[in-house]
């Protein structure tokens, strides 16, 4: 089996360090803030694997995030126990994405139109959910609630025990575990043929088709997996906020995740995670001031990064790190050669 250096490497040392950092993060931030940052990171990761590795840009990834949140809320109100709603919050966005993606990819719609379609779907969902205030907008016993959204549903509970709610630090650790697990799933996907073909499609779709790969099926597959991850983030967000409103489908939400991914570094998995957590934290800090509009600052940050580090922060750091290691290795090698030469000249004397 041949290794693909670009995707196969998983440094377990770094991964364990990340586990340690996530375990201790609530000591630095309050649990509430830390949980939100983790959820945003998961949302960004869901877009990052699809955009960065398969080259599929969805302007409206918030649709699946919102669908995950609403699916959980509606299902948990009707069922009363969170295990099935949790699973449905992954499944429903995945199925919706498979339908939309399938129509787009098998219909040979270009990538630009895909971006437009996904954005339009998000805006339609936003408009629709905002207009569901009346009593007729009920699914089972769950009222959709229009612009005011759906408050007061059960948060996650221990599976099979609806009375034992998980709230506060358990929600944080569930979110952190979901992020780490999703990261490993992404790594696993990329190390398999499926992931490698996706990278091939990103590089040259026509060639992959000429190699006999069903490009539309691969694209639909990753679109669906990515939507499931976004749905998971949405579900966790619903649990964090204890309310779901149409703002989960908002244009702001759709655009922010794009910025997180670009700034963090497209074509990496760690980039979107760090981008979302860093920019998300900046956003929270900025939220406390009223001097200047937050969007202006985030927009300026995006422009600065795009101009200064066109590949994003993580690839830039990686490049510097690799260059430094190479330099160090050269110095060590030169030093050892010099020592050998000195030793041999002393022996000759």
């Amino acid at each position: 089996m041949m290794n693909w250096p670009s995707v196969d490497r998983i440094n377990w040392g770094w991964f364990l360090l990340a586990v340690g950092i996530f375990a201790l993060l609530p000591l630095v931030f309050d649990t509430h803030t830390a949980t939100l940052l983790i959820i945003w990171a998961l949302f960004a990761l869901s877009l990052g694997i699809m955009w960065g590795f398969a080259g599929l840009l969805s302007f409206g990834h918030a649709a699946y995030f919102g669908l995950g949140a609403y699916t959980y809320a509606v299902a948990v109100i009707n069922i009363g126990e969170s295990t099935l709603p949790f699973l449905l919050s992954l499944l429903v966005p995945a199925i919706v994405a498979a339908i939309i993606g399938g129509m787009a990819f098998y219909g040979r719609i270009s990538d630009v139109y895909l971006g437009v379609i996904t954005l339009v779907v998000t805006l339609i969902l936003f408009k629709f959910m905002s207009a569901t205030a009346g009593d007729i907008y009920k699914i089972g016993s769950a009222r959709l609630g229009g612009f005011n959204g759906m408050p007061g549903f059960h948060t996650l509970n221990v599976p099979g025990y609806p009375d034992i709610s998980l709230w506060g630090w358990p929600t944080y650790y569930i979110s952190a575990s979901s992020l780490l697990l999703s990261y490993l799933v992404c790594r696993w996907i990329l190390a398999r043929t499926f992931g490698r073909v996706l990278i091939g499609i990103r590089e040259n779709e026509e060639r992959c088709e000429l190699l006999g790969y069903n490009v539309a099926a691969y694209k639909t597959g990753i679109f669906s997996v990515s939507a499931a991850m976004a749905g998971l983030a949405g579900c966790l967000f619903a649990n964090w906020a204890e309310i779901v409103t149409p703002s989960v489908f908002s244009l702001g939400q759709a655009v922010e995740v794009l910025i997180w991914v670009i700034v963090g570094g497209l074509g990496t998995l760690i980039g979107p995670i760090l981008g979302a957590m860093a920019l998300g934290y900046v956003k929270l800090l900025l939220g406390e001031q009223t001097v200047i509009d937050n969007s202006l600052i985030l927009g300026a940050l995006l422009i600065a990064v795009v101009l200064g580090l066109p590949n994003g922060v993580v690839p830039a750091i990686r490049r510097i790190w690799n260059a430094a290691r190479l330099k160090l290795r050269r110095r060590v090698s030169e030093g050892s050669t010099r020592r050998t030469l000195n030793a041999s000249s002393q022996v000759n004397r």
Binding site: M2, W4, P5, S6, R196, G200, R207, C208
Partner: peptide, 13 residues
């Protein structure tokens, strides 16, 4: 060809 990949990766795919 897939310009961003190595020759080996192109052939492997």
């Amino acid at each position: 060809v897939m310009n961003g990949l190595t020759v080996q990766e192109n052939l492997w795919l």
